[in-house]
Design a protein around this nucleic acid. Structure first.
Lengths: 149, 149
DNA sequence: CGATACCCTATCGAATTAGTAGTGATTTAA
DNA sequence: TTAAATCACTACTAATTCGATAGGGTATCG
């Protein structure tokens, strides 16, 4: 499961992307109430995204947030890594935060690792290719409702 | 990330699968020391797997554990669901433990959900197709070392 | 100058994780 | 028949993470 925080981050970015063509810079309060997100919590999240160069902000009256990069250059994978950390299901499979499994004898021959490497590859394929703009466009997705347990 | 517990469970099952052709029923202590797993922790894990019909046990001297189903019928997905719960990255995408996202207005049009549905589908494809026997056989895997963040 | 909004740090309760500990029940072999 | 080995079960616990909440500080605009 991804964290609630990551879900909020993604939804906030979608909201910003949607507001972008109108030239508006929505405030935290607006996004929060529109998306059903606790305001102070969202404040932290957007601040974090700002520190990571995803969004920009304007202070004072008529302030707000805007995307710093075009929506079609912000991937789900990028955001997930900022907010939740590694995407890989094993520490020894993470590029951004590689860590040896301290209980694992030989990484090369680890049977479990081989399987999760495939999963990591598949997930990364999707998450690093799909942008905020894509998700807004919607469209070509399989009409699948409940898929995986 | 999967839990340490799930990793232990999978490694223990691989060990049992490997011992199977020899007719042996390894003890918790043997698996634990062989796989570098805390013994009492592994005891709990195997007990749990037993309750879920994955392994069987024999008590007393010369006791131990064995697989209850053939290794090529035990999938990674099945074990992960038992030990870690849902595989899907969103509660609203889980088959085994569906839960509405309480902050989400409309599930059908949720942009975030659409993307994670693809991930769930892809992950499930791999995890529900790959068995303990497959991982033991190794072989056809891509020779990828560090793949995803 | 004062209202509005972002900026930043600290704190907190609940849940989860990764074990440890201790006792009980069963089987085998001497 | 009894000792030793082994699984069975329950309870506890220390540390961390999660999902916030609180409360100021700081810039900007009118």
């Amino acid at each position: 499961m991804i964290s609630q925080k990551a879900k909020y981050a993604l939804r906030a970015l979608v909201a910003l992307a949607r507001a972008e063509p109108t030239g508006q810079t929505p405030t935290v309060g607006e996004i929060a109430s529109g998306q059903n997100i606790p305001k102070k919590f969202l404040e932290q999240i957007l601040l974090d995204l700002k520190h990571h160069g995803i969004v920009a902000s304007k202070r004072g009256k008529a302030g707000g947030y805007m995307l710093l990069k075009p929506a079609n250059r912000i991937t789900f994978g990028e955001i997930l890594r900022i907010v939740d950390g590694p995407i890989a299901l094993l520490p020894c499979l993470s590029v951004v935060a590689y860590r040896r499994c301290d209980d694992c004898q030989d990484e090369q021959s680890c049977e479990v690792r081989h399987v999760f490497a495939k999963v990591a590859l598949a997930s990364r394929d999707i998450l690093d290719q799909t942008t905020i703009a894509d998700s807004l466009a919607g469209g070509d997705d399989n009409p699948v409702l409940r898929i995986a347990g």
